[in-house]
């Protein structure tokens, strides 16, 4: 043992953790604290605010149903996206885990390939698929299935589709990592004790993969609810999410105090979702999923 130090020495732990702690304080806590202070500033005119402290911004948020409506809509779209991701993502993850294909790494690589292309470009690609002159409408019209183009682009459905495209790999990776940690002898034991394949899946595999599914749900919900680009590009004027409200308040109205207030609200909402997950499932599963 090194002289004067013990394994798990508290001083050593603090020294090792200090750089990250410092970065967290400087790059996360301090900006959030500054944003919080800004929520109490007074908006004077576009681009100008004064340091006269007021509760007006909070009062406006708490009493104005316009904001509540968008907050609810953001939660709804985030939840729908996360649930669809879970339904669509579980099966590919299960397949990759269960397959006896020799080059399993290739399947995992395919999951990561979309990340090599810019997120914005991937989102834009949906315009050429869902638009009136897009792939789907052109094919359906040429096949004679429809006579008028279907209104698919600039709808909430298009926004959810874009979010699914972006978030599905996160869900699959999380579930896959969770499945990988299951001791396969447990399934063999269940089968040897008379379980059918479906029963073994229902009684053993599914419950043991729940932490991964939960982590995927949390990640997909948080990322969907906090998204700004997808609703901006694929949604119509009514399909904005809370992130778009924040953008418009800060960049359009140049009202930083109100924009800061809305930002803190979204931060608290998403933080609460993460805290609830952490309380019941633990955050370690997410780390596993992200490092897969």
């Amino acid at each position: 043992m090194t002289k004067g130090w013990k394994l798990y020495d508290q001083r050593l732990a603090w020294i090792l953790v200090a750089p990250v702690l410092l970065l967290l304080i400087l790059l996360l806590l301090l900006p959030i604290a500054m944003m919080t202070v800004y929520t109490f500033f007074t908006f004077v005119t576009a681009g100008v605010e004064s340091a006269v402290l007021t509760f007006d911004n909070w009062k406006e948020f708490l009493t104005d149903s316009y904001y509540h409506g968008f907050l609810w809509k953001t939660v709804r779209v985030g939840a729908i996206t996360a649930v669809i991701c879970a339904i669509l993502g579980y099966f590919p993850a299960y397949f990759i885990w269960a397959t006896t294909f020799r080059h399993k790494w290739l399947l995992l690589l395919l999951l990561i390939v979309p990340f090599w292309i810019s997120f914005t470009i991937r989102t834009f690609s949906w315009i050429h698929i869902l638009g009136e002159q897009g792939l789907i409408n052109v094919v359906l019209i040429r096949l004679g299935v429809i006579s008028e183009p279907l209104p698919m682009l600039y709808t909430e459905g298009a926004v959810i589709m874009g979010l699914l495209h972006f978030l599905l790999p996160y869900m699959i990776l999380n579930v896959y990592v969770s499945l990988e940690s299951i001791d396969r002898t447990l399934i063999a034991a269940a089968r040897s004790m008379g379980c059918t394949s479906a029963q073994a899946f229902r009684e053993v595999t599914l419950p043991l993969s729940m932490p991964g599914l939960g982590a995927g749900l949390l990640l997909c919900f948080v990322l969907a609810a906090g998204s700004y680009v997808t609703p901006q590009l694929l949604g119509g004027s009514r399909d904005a999410l809370f992130g778009n409200l924040i953008y418009d308040t800060i960049m359009g109205q140049l009202n930083w105090p109100m924009g800061a207030t809305l930002s803190i609200v979204l931060f608290v909402l998403l933080g609460a979702a993460a805290a609830a997950y952490s309380r019941y499932m633990g955050l370690s599963q997410i780390m596993k999923g992200l490092s897969a």
Partner: peptide, 12 residues
């Protein structure tokens, strides 16, 4: 200021 705020709402 007032009209921009109202427009943001109407547009959504």
């Amino acid at each position: 200021d007032a009209w921009t705020k109202q427009w943001d709402r109407v547009s959504k």
